[in-house]
Simulated scan of single mutants.
Amino acid sequence: MTQKVLVTSIFLHAGGEVDHLLRAEGFEPTYAPALTKRTEDELIGLLDGVSGAIIANEPFTDRVLAAAPDLKVISRTGVGFDSIDVAAATQRGVVVCNTPNVNRYAVAEWTLAMMLGCARHAVKNWTEMNAGGFKRFEGTELYGKTLGLAGLGGIGKEVARRAHAFGMTLLAVEEYQDQAFAAQYGVTYVDLETALEQSDFLSLHLPLNAQTRHLINAERLARMKPSACLINTARGGVVDTVALAQALREGTIAAAALDVFEEEPLPADSHLHALENLLMSPHVGGVTTEARQMSGVRAAENLILALKGQAPASPVNPEVIPTARYAVSAT
């Protein structure tokens, strides 16, 4: 019996490279693009008889997993997996995979774009010209400024490389310190409080978990320079959005740039839309042709290996693999 694979990432489609990969291995892909926020009940309906899923950010909760007894593998076309109850998946022997570093260049470039957007008031200047005006909004240079990086993994390092080329002073908050990299790019490892106090720009590159949720709260925003800019291209929940909005309104910090939000899509009536010193984009940091192509292929390769009972390249819960009872043929 052919195994069904559910594909929800909006950029994957029938006839594409991933589709050919799955069919060549004898799997039957079905496509249900997640165009809006998907409910648990909607997801449960899609998982009937499904052995593996290549997903975006659907809510794979304990309830969803309990209702999908045939599911053996969840493979993310991205880095974050906070929408998946990994503990519940592990308990049920479901392998969870992600695709780390596939979008690191894309996200790093977008981070620099957001920094420049804040520093040079890019949107205001472009909007002024498009409206037929010629008022100039004076900005500030990145050269000589201090960039604090909360997280110096794959993406954080790519941001550091680019910021180094701009002549910025680099601080990093990172548990696993790469001293060779730090020496090459002039990175100084510091604690978070030091980064908050000394950074002109603070850029977040952290996963969302119990330790990092609302890491940037009212107390920590108050420790930043009044002239500082906060940039988040990681996960929306790392920042307490209510506290950030208040800090921006009151001038606690000068500006912020967000590519990610606690609720996505961001509601049209969100109070964030009214903030003139907030630059926002719709979670597009990793949305490039190159990053999407690579993430789709890597996610498919992870899923194929896992469904064959082999170790995928990037399992989130590798402890499941040695004892998993899912090794079956594709047909």
Results as ranks from 00 to 15, higher is better:
287 V>K: 07
167 G>D: 06
39 T>Y: 10
180 A>C: 03
50 V>S: 07
289 T>R: 14
184 Q>S: 08
181 F>S: 00
19 D>E: 08
219 E>T: 12
302 N>F: 07
29 P>F: 08
260 V>W: 13
161 R>P: 01
286 G>Y: 00
192 L>T: 02
70 D>L: 11
147 L>A: 02
78 G>K: 00
222 A>N: 04
263 E>G: 09
303 L>Y: 01
203 S>H: 05
137 F>W: 13
309 G>E: 04
233 T>Q: 03
331 T>S: 15
180 A>H: 08
25 E>Q: 15
59 P>Y: 01
164 H>Y: 12
226 P>I: 06
218 A>D: 04
140 T>H: 13
122 A>N: 03
317 N>P: 08
8 T>S: 13
300 A>R: 06
42 E>D: 14
287 V>N: 13
280 M>D: 03
159 V>S: 05
58 E>Q: 01
112 L>Y: 06
10 I>H: 09
119 A>F: 02
326 Y>T: 15
185 Y>H: 08
130 N>W: 13
92 R>Q: 12
115 M>V: 04
311 A>S: 09
161 R>D: 01
222 A>R: 10
193 E>L: 08
64 V>F: 06
243 A>L: 09
184 Q>C: 02
203 S>R: 00
69 P>Y: 11
116 L>S: 02
122 A>V: 14
13 H>S: 11
115 M>P: 03
81 F>L: 06
19 D>G: 02
220 R>V: 09
55 I>H: 06
251 G>F: 00
112 L>G: 05
138 E>Y: 11
7 V>S: 05
119 A>Q: 03
143 Y>T: 15
214 H>F: 09
201 F>C: 00
241 T>L: 08
162 R>C: 07
49 G>I: 03
122 A>K: 08
232 N>Y: 08
89 A>M: 03
40 E>H: 05
109 E>N: 12
75 S>P: 07
81 F>C: 11
70 D>V: 07
165 A>V: 09
210 A>W: 01
23 R>H: 07
210 A>S: 14
102 V>P: 00
301 E>S: 02
171 L>P: 12
193 E>M: 10
20 H>R: 15
179 Q>P: 02
284 V>G: 03
152 L>T: 00
320 V>D: 01
165 A>T: 11
46 L>G: 09
79 V>I: 14
164 H>K: 15
101 N>V: 12
136 R>N: 14
286 G>R: 02
202 L>T: 06
43 L>I: 11
13 H>E: 13
120 R>V: 09
56 A>G: 14
201 F>T: 01
176 Y>K: 15
240 D>W: 05
182 A>R: 03
39 T>V: 10
130 N>M: 15
96 V>A: 00
259 D>M: 10
69 P>M: 08
80 G>N: 01
123 V>E: 10
153 G>T: 06
64 V>E: 05
208 L>E: 09
160 A>I: 05
85 D>E: 01
156 G>L: 10
221 L>I: 04
60 F>G: 01
238 V>T: 11
167 G>N: 10
186 G>R: 07
158 E>G: 03
98 N>E: 10
86 V>Q: 07
252 T>C: 05
11 F>Q: 06
151 G>M: 09
118 C>L: 13
240 D>L: 08
306 A>Y: 05
37 K>E: 11
258 L>R: 04
118 C>Y: 08
286 G>F: 01
201 F>S: 01
154 G>R: 03
295 S>V: 00
130 N>D: 14
199 S>V: 04
264 E>P: 15
44 I>T: 15
297 V>T: 12
315 P>F: 00
78 G>V: 03
275 L>S: 03
307 L>E: 04
91 Q>E: 15
